[in-house]
Design a binder for these strands. Structure first.
Lengths: 150, 150
DNA sequence: ATTGTAATTGAGACTCATTATCAATTAAAC
DNA sequence: GTTTAATTGATAATGAGTCTCAATTACAAT
């Protein structure tokens, strides 16, 4: 796994500005977070970190995830009955999701039309929109086939 | 508060089909649910029911909310750090929400363009979409003013 | 390098929403 | 009315996430 010094810089600057420290625990969590491609939840991240031999407690994982959200390196995707799902946002353009009811898989997509629509809608309502999340639920290709077979 | 016999019929039929019973607890919870206009969470509903003098335990409230979701009379709006938020869907057309970061208030809106956009997006991805949720976060009129004053 | 000091860590206690348990109750079919 | 399986509710259990606090440590100043 290649180093990602840019992200370390972003994070350590963010911390320094607030008089906070860039510890090895935070560094390990940052690294594992940034090496992840898809969605993840704190517990899974914690287990991966332990497996990788790094030392960081569950508490630190939660605390660091919080910080990473604040400085914009990751963001919350959604809350589920099994906990909160996050994803890397650094080097990962804004997008929305389609979520398969059948298998839980997620498709990412981006739509310029949607971005413009958000602006229109906000104008109509006198609302100052900053971000949005669109989640489309349904069936992915695979699960559509499975359904036909039954 | 007027009676809403249609919803009772829907619910009791739904239950009968599944060999389940239409108890007074379920009836009380249904009624309180249907008399609500905005968003609500299970705990608030439970407290209201107790205040109204009806008898239903917290456990029954949770269990019945689950049933009401299954039969389509209410639906989950979102999960927050303070629990799950629901809203009546019976006699309440589909819509999406703008959520104020400042005060937590919610604006409901409906957009035909958005509905058509969902269809387009799904076609593009070979996804069979059934429902969606669009949540736009930002500042409502009041909170925009407050921010200016500071 | 050493020191001083405030930030951080981690183990475990705690919170709070939600679910499971199970004996007692009850709807509703006969 | 009897029967019987579904339901209820008090309470225990679960599980994600947060808090506590003594021990540790980053880091700025000397």
């Amino acid at each position: 796994m290649r180093e990602k010094p840019v992200q370390k810089q972003v994070f350590s600057r963010f911390l320094k500005e607030r008089g906070q420290r860039f510890t090895k625990e935070r560094s390990a969590i940052l690294e594992k977070t940034m090496s992840r491609n898809g969605h993840f939840d704190p517990e899974t991240l914690y287990i991966e970190i332990r497996k990788a031999g790094a030392k960081a407690s569950r508490a630190s994982v939660y605390r660091t995830i919080s910080l990473l959200c604040e400085c914009g390196l990751i963001e919350q995707v959604r809350k589920t009955e099994h906990g909160t799902v996050y994803e890397r946002s650094f080097g990962h353009e804004h997008h929305d999701h389609m979520l398969c009811i059948g298998c839980g898989s997620a498709i990412e997509f981006y739509s310029d039309k949607l971005e413009r629509l958000q602006e229109d809608l906000c104008r109509q309502q006198g609302f100052q929109g900053t971000t949005h999340t669109l989640e489309i639920r349904g069936y992915c290709r695979k699960c559509q086939k499975k359904k036909k077979q039954t």
